[in-house]
Every structure is written in structure tokens, then in C-alpha cells.
Design a protein around this nucleic acid. Structure first.
Length: 644
RNA sequence: GCUCCGGUAGCUCAGUGGUAGAGCGCUUCCUUGGUAAGGAAGAGGUCGAGGGUUCAAUUCCCUCCCGGAGCUCCA
């Protein structure tokens, strides 16, 4: 007779079951509905298979499709089922890794011939068959020797096996014909899978190492409900429609030209308006916050980068040197050394601190051709860079001020955000005490403000901890936003000093910070965030005035001129039919159309049609409309963003 | 940089071993239109670049350039 064990459920209820009972038994003991819905169990905090025997008294929670763990489980199992299908159709395929990832899953295969889109379709069909067969996922613990035998035909798995420690548990999972080295856990059987979709195939290095074999990776995703999969696919479609490269061309915002070079952005007039508005806004913002504007050159003597250490640490990202009269110059990859030189142009007193230098500094970095991507990843870009020199005591106040700045700025663009605190990495410079103190300072400011944040343990740069702000865009994607970085390195290297109240030399603390990061990346992201429909203050063309027929052109032109005199970017369009012009203006995502016909001329009004609002329109006094525009522009209102 | 896919008119794309097409856009003319495409005519291409095979290459082969999906890396 087996001994019995006590299983404590989340509601505190205790079940008495025979030793070796499984999560499934627990579910069955509670009710048949749950027995059907249960997918896995959390036993003493560990997520395990539903059919894993429970050896001793334990706390247990059952996982169903509704629990947050379930989706990962589903996708991991989907990866195995994909591999099952691929192995059936391509028996020779070597299997690599196949994890669940944020949006789905992937599996890497070593194959002679890369996969084609047709292959993906065939794999999807085969996946359906594997699901229908409803193979149970069977877990088995094996010895190193057994494992080697089982995977003797799978060199990639054998390599992975070598990395196991003596006492480490090795488990394999089987679903039907397919066996994989895997920690698990999995769904009870392949029949629990539903709504699996393969999305793409591309090369990926074995273990992410470019010196190793190139595998073929298949990406897919899976959901419990058809509707969720549908929505996910729609989101992908939506993202494609918002692609800043497509909108950038359609709206004439920016271009690249191979005669200029890869990764180098040419800002067309419409894009330049957006950039200029943002720069003007930010200048106003930071001058209000006590920054001073500086300018530094684009090319700099290489010696400066020897002092700064960039030549040592950042060389592979720097453009090559050019020689002038025997001296070597480099396009600058960062602005900090220049700002430090400005700091050092005179002797500094503690009375001057904090000193905050800001520059829209254009930097050039060599990026491998394969990583370039529209405006998001380029070789030349302009940072809204600033460096704060202050005393250690001033750091908390500086961080506080920065939090205000970030908050104000991100609200202006309509981005919610999250905060990450990155702490000391393995190879850090400076003593542990200095780091601990700095991290504690950052943490203290965040906590005093009651701000939520996550900690990226060991995610700091070698020279200091940082705060990262992540933006969340209109379709829920996360983007790198503002960062603040403490720097223990450059002040040392350059020997920066100030004279304290004690008349002694002291080393100031240096903060690096960016708000938008790079104009290119930020505006690229902004194009996608707004789907090209910029709020009025940023819109390259703010109002298009449409006379109903050419006989009203003159009257309409006068109104356009009046608006222009007030700094409003208004344009007259009187060529084609009214319907045509309205369509054109909608497609150009122009915030306002002003229609002028006989009635409007007689009454001195304008029929205002707002972007995206269809036939709804409002006939307004022209002066009132103009005032409304100016208010909306001055307030940098987000009102004209269509609902995402 | 690597793997795979691609490059034909300003844009989106069709097509072929015998030097090329559509839609949109552009130009001109007609139309003077009340809320998402009025009509007609026309211009526009060294079919990414170079080399090779061939009587003949935009088409087949090679190299390079550029772009895309990823890998790795980052603002």
C-alpha cells in the first residue's frame, strides 16, 4: 500500500493522495472540468508536467490556459511539434534549440537546403497532423551515456550534452516519433496545441556565434484561442503598415541614396520640419531646465579618443582615420570627450556646478551592413546629448530634475514608459563601494518618488550604473527611450576637476544623458507610433485649403496667406476635383482641411474637416479656426492622433 | 560580416533567350467640380553595375553594389 502525501492547494485546502500522484490526479480529485483544463502544475514553486509524480507533501497550483505560464508552455510545446513535423518531412535535419520567446517560438535546424515558404506551408500541414495524433509528451530522466546513445545522430545535441555537469539531471521529452533533449515542462499532449502559425524562416548561427555553423531558424507563434492568433497576426499587419520606411517614402519624410552611402539619412523637407520642431521644442525644454547649448566638431584628433579610451574600447565601431598634415582625425562616435574639453577650458569652482552641456551632436559609427535598418539603425545620427558635471551631493537632485524632464517630454509625444535600473556588471571599474553608493542613490530617488522600476542586474556599463526608460508605442511595442548614465571612468581619464569650498581640487561626477537618443531613431519610431499621422504641431503640412472651384482660389489663397503669416503651415490645393483633393489630403495625413465655396466666401467662414473624421465637418469663422489652430499648436496637443 | 530572398518607369508590380508592360504618380488639354479617384492625350526604362556563355542576354552563369528577413551588435 502506497504511503499518502498531503497536497496543499492555493486556497489552503489540503488533499490527501497516494504518493506518486500527479497534478492530473489532483485536478481529477477536484473536478472533471479542471482535469480537462489543467495543462501543468506548479509544485513548490516549480512549473512541472501535469503527469509528473509528486513524491512528497507539497504546495500545488494547477496551471490552465488562463494562467500566465500557460502561453510559454504552449509555445515551447509548439516548437517541439514543429521539430516533429520537420523531422518527418526532412529526416536528415539536425536539431538545434527550440525555445518559446516573447511573441512565439522558434526552432533551429541544420539542413543542407534552406527552407522555402512552400516548406513552411508543408510543415504547417504536418503540424496539424501531429496535433491530431495527440501524442503525449513523455518525460524521461536519462544518464549521460543513455543520452549520448539516443542522440548519436544529432551532433548539436551531443555538443550540448557535453556541457552538463556530473550531477545535473538530464531529461528528454518524446512526442510520438520525436525525441528531444529538453528540460521541459510541456503540455500533456500534442492534442492540446491549437492555433499554431509559422511566420518566417531565416539563418541563425549555432549558439549565436558567427564563427559557428549557420542553421535555419523557423519562427512561429501559437495561442490558445483562434481570436488571439488572429489579433496577433493583425498586429503584425498593423506594424507592417506603420513601417517608417514605407511611410517615410509615401510622405516624403526621408530617403537614402546609395551614392551617399548605406545607413546615412537624407532628410527631405517634410521630415526636416518634424525634426526641427522636435529640436526647437527640446531646446526650449532644456534651456528652461538649466542646460547650456554647446557645439563640437564632427571630426576630432584621434589623440582625444586615446585619452577617452574610445580607441581602445570602441574602435571596431569607429570610422577610420583621415590624415591631415601628419595628424590623424576621426569622425566622432560620441560627444562626451568634446564636452569635457569645454569643461576644462577654464578652471571650475564648486560655485559653478552643476554644469550642464547639451548638444544635438552628430556622431558616426561603423555598423555592419546587415544591421542597418531604415532610420532605426544607421551609421550617422544626431544625439540629443548632454553631460552634467556636478558634485556627488548634487547627483540626487540632478536625477530628480531629469525624471521631470523625461516625464514632461514623453507625455508630449504620448508615450507611456517604464524604468529600468542597470547595476554593476562583472567587469566594472571603480570600487564596489562607489558602485553601491551610486546605485543606492539612483534607487533612492526612484523610491522617494514612488516610481515603479525593474532592476537589470549587472546591466550597467563597465564605467557606471544607468537608468533606462523604455517607451511603449501605440501598438504596444517597447522602444529604447531616454537613458541616464553615471560615469566613473571619463572624469578619471581626463582628470576633470573643480575647486571646492575647501580650496582643494576635487573630481566632479559626470552624468551622460539623452532624451530622444538619436533624432533618426526617435523620429523613425515616432512615424510608427503615429502611423504617419503626426499631431498638428509636428505635421509637415498642417492645413490644406480646398476651394470648391477655381473661382474661389483667390479668396482661399488670402486665407492661406493669413495663416502663414501666423506661422501655420498651410497650403492651397485648387487643381483637381474636390473629391480627389480630399482623398489626397487624407492620404497625406494632413491634420486639417479647410473647404471654401460660395457660402464660405460670402460669410467669411471655412468648412473645417479634420483628418480621419469622414464627412463630419464644422463651418467656422476663419478667425476662430485660426485661433484654434494656434492653441493646438502651442499646446502641442495630441488630439489629432487617430485612435490606434 | 554571415545565411537565404530580391533589384524591371518616381511608387507598387507583371513579363520574356529575339532590346518591355499595367496601375498609381507626373505633364498638357478639356472639365469648374460641396466632401476619399471626372475625361482625354502625352512624357518617362542602358530591365542595379561589370564580366562570361550565345548569332542574340533584361532573361542563363560568375563577381560586385544596393535592399529585405534573420543571426550578432547597438542610439
Amino acid at each position: 500500500m502506497a504511503r499518502s502525501i498531503q497536497v496543499t492547494l492555493p486556497d489552503g485546502k489540503v488533499l490527501e493522495l497516494p504518493e506518486g500522484s500527479t497534478g492530473h490526479d489532483v485536478a481529477a480529485a477536484i473536478g472533471p472540468g479542471l482535469a480537462k483544463a489543467a495543462l501543468a502544475a506548479v509544485v513548490d514553486g516549480e512549473l512541472v508536467d501535469l503527469h509528473r509524480p509528486i513524491e512528497s507533501d507539497a504546495e500545488l497550483r494547477l496551471v490552465t490556459a488562463r494562467d500566465p505560464e500557460a502561453l510559454g508552455l504552449l509555445r515551447h510545446s509548439a516548437a517541439h511539434v514543429l521539430a516533429t513535423a520537420v523531422r518527418r518531412l526532412r529526416p536528415g535535419a539536425e536539431i538545434g534549440f527550440g525555445p518559446a520567446i516573447e511573441e512565439g517560438f522558434y526552432y533551429d535546424f541544420g539542413v543542407e537546403e534552406p527552407f522555402t515558404p512552400d516548406d513552411l506551408e508543408r510543415f504547417e500541414e504536418e503540424i496539424e497532423r501531429v496535433i491530431e495524433a495527440d501524442y503525449p509528451f513523455e518525460r524521461r530522466q536519462v544518464t549521460q551515456d543513455e543520452a549520448r546513445e539516443l542522440f548519436h545522430d544529432d551532433p548539436l545535441k551531443l555538443e550540448r550534452l557535453e556541457e552538463f555537469d556530473e550531477d545535473e539531471v538530464i531529461t528528454v521529452y518524446r512526442d510520438g516519433p520525436f525525441l528531444d533533449l529538453c528540460r521541459g515542462p510541456h503540455l500533456p499532449s500534442t492534442g492540446h496545441l491549437r492555433h499554431v502559425k509559422l511566420l518566417s524562416a531565416a539563418g541563425a548561427y549555432w549558439r549565436g556565434d558567427e564563427r559557428r555553423q549557420m542553421l535555419q531558424r523557423i519562427y512561429g507563434t501559437a495561442f490558445f484561442r483562434a481570436k488571439e492568433l488572429e489579433e496577433h497576426l493583425e498586429r503584425l499587419e498593423e506594424a507592417k503598415k506603420r513601417d517608417h520606411r514605407v511611410l517615410g517614402r509615401e510622405l516624403d519624410l526621408f530617403t537614402v541614396d546609395e551614392r551617399v552611402g548605406s545607413g546615412l539619412i537624407l532628410w527631405q523637407p517634410a521630415g526636416s520640419i518634424i525634426r526641427n520642431e522636435i529640436e526647437e521644442y527640446e531646446k526650449e525644454l532644456i534651456l528652461r531646465h538649466g542646460y547650456e547649448l554647446v557645439y563640437t566638431p564632427h571630426i576630432v584628433s584621434e589623440k582625444l579618443f586615446e585619452v577617452s579610451g574610445h580607441l581602445e574600447n570602441f574602435r571596431e565601431n569607429m570610422f577610420g582615420a583621415m590624415e591631415v598634415e601628419g595628424a590623424r582625425y576621426r569622425p566622432k562616435p560620441m560627444n562626451c570627450p568634446g564636452h569635457i574639453c569645454i569643461y576644462q577650458a577654464s578652471q571650475r569652482s564648486y560655485r559653478e556646478l552643476p554644469i550642464r552641456y547639451a548638444e544635438f551632436g552628430t556622431v558616426y559609427r561603423y555598423e555592419r551592413s546587415g544591421v542597418l535598418h531604415g532610420m532605426l539603425r544607421v551609421r550617422g545620427f544626431t544625439q540629443d546629448d548632454a553631460h552634467v558635471f556636478c558634485t556627488a551631493e548634487q547627483v540626487p537632485a540632478e536625477i530628480e530634475a531629469l525624471l521631470d524632464l523625461v516625464d514632461e517630454m514623453l507625455a508630449t509625444f504620448g508615450y507611456p514608459y517604464t524604468i529600468e535600473l542597470a547595476t554593476r556588471p562583472e567587469s566594472a571599474m571603480g570600487s564596489e563601494e562607489v558602485w553601491d553608493e551610486a546605485v543606492a542613490t539612483l534607487r533612492g530617488v526612484l523610491e522617494e518618488r514612488g516610481l515603479e522600476y525593474t532592476v537589470d542586474e549587472g546591466g550597467g556599463a563597465f564605467y557606471g550604473p544607468k537608468l533606462d526608460f523604455k517607451l511603449i508605442d501605440a501598438i504596444g511595442r517597447r522602444w529604447q527611450g531616454p537613458t541616464v548614465q553615471l560615469d566613473f571612468n571619463l572624469p578619471e581619464r581626463f582628470g576633470i576637476e573643480y575647486i571646492g569650498s575647501d580650496n582643494e581640487r576635487h573630481r566632479p561626477v559626470m552624468l551622460h544623458r539623452v532624451l530622444v537618443g538619436s533624432m533618426e531613431r526617435f523620429i523613425g519610431g515616432l512615424i510608427e507610433h503615429y502611423a504617419g499621422a503626426f499631431p498638428l504641431w509636428l505635421a509637415p503640412e498642417q492645413v490644406r485649403v480646398l476651394p470648391i472651384s477655381e473661382q474661389f482660389s483667390e479668396n482661399a489663397r488670402a486665407f492661406v496667406d493669413e495663416m502663414r503669416a501666423h506661422g501655420i503651415r498651410a497650403v492651397l490645393a485648387d487643381r483637381e476635383t474636390l473629391g480627389y483633393r480630399i482623398r489626397e489630403a487624407e492620404m497625406r495625413k494632413i491634420p486639417y482641411m479647410g473647404v471654401i465655396g460660395e457660402r464660405e466666401v460670402d460669410e467669411g467662414t471655412v468648412a473645417v474637416r479634420r483628418r480621419g473624421s469622414g464627412r463630419k465637418q464644422e463651418v467656422m469663422e476663419r478667425g476662430a479656426f485660426l485661433e484654434q489652430l494656434l492653441d493646438e499648436i502651442r499646446g502641442r496637443s495630441l488630439d489629432t492622433i487617430p485612435d490606434a
